[in-house]
Simulated assay, not measured.
Amino acid sequence: MCEANAYMVKDGEETLLMESVDLVEPEADGTFRLVGIFGDQITIKGKIRRMNLVDHRILFEP
């Protein structure tokens, strides 16, 4: 399995945004659309801080 969990990092704390993310797609308005393995979707505003695919983690920051 290649999916990862997405987190928002703010003030040194990580908050889970979505589990089992299969697709991260940048949108024209500067947001990111995250799509899960079952088709669930969220849109977040922020920037990618780090992607560690070995550990299955995507970190965003505001």
Results as ranks from 00 to 15, higher is better:
49 R>N: 03
19 E>M: 05
18 M>D: 04
26 P>G: 06
35 V>F: 01
14 E>V: 00
18 M>V: 06
36 G>F: 05
52 N>F: 11
58 I>P: 10
24 V>W: 00
49 R>D: 14
50 R>I: 13
2 C>Y: 15
32 F>V: 03
36 G>D: 07
24 V>P: 00
37 I>V: 15
1 M>V: 12
16 L>G: 01
1 M>C: 13
24 V>E: 09
39 G>I: 08
49 R>I: 14
26 P>R: 05
23 L>C: 15
48 I>D: 10
31 T>P: 06
35 V>K: 13
3 E>G: 00
38 F>Q: 03
34 L>A: 10
16 L>D: 08
42 I>V: 11
55 D>Y: 13
45 K>P: 02
39 G>Q: 06
26 P>H: 04
18 M>G: 06
6 A>K: 05
33 R>A: 13
48 I>T: 09
55 D>F: 08
29 D>Q: 05
50 R>V: 11
52 N>L: 03
21 V>E: 00
55 D>I: 02
51 M>G: 10
14 E>Y: 08
23 L>R: 11
24 V>S: 02
21 V>K: 03
56 H>M: 13
26 P>T: 04
28 A>F: 08
43 T>C: 13
52 N>T: 14
40 D>W: 11
55 D>V: 11
30 G>I: 01
9 V>L: 11
23 L>M: 10
38 F>P: 00
30 G>L: 02
61 E>W: 02
42 I>K: 08
59 L>T: 13
22 D>G: 05
13 E>R: 07
23 L>I: 07
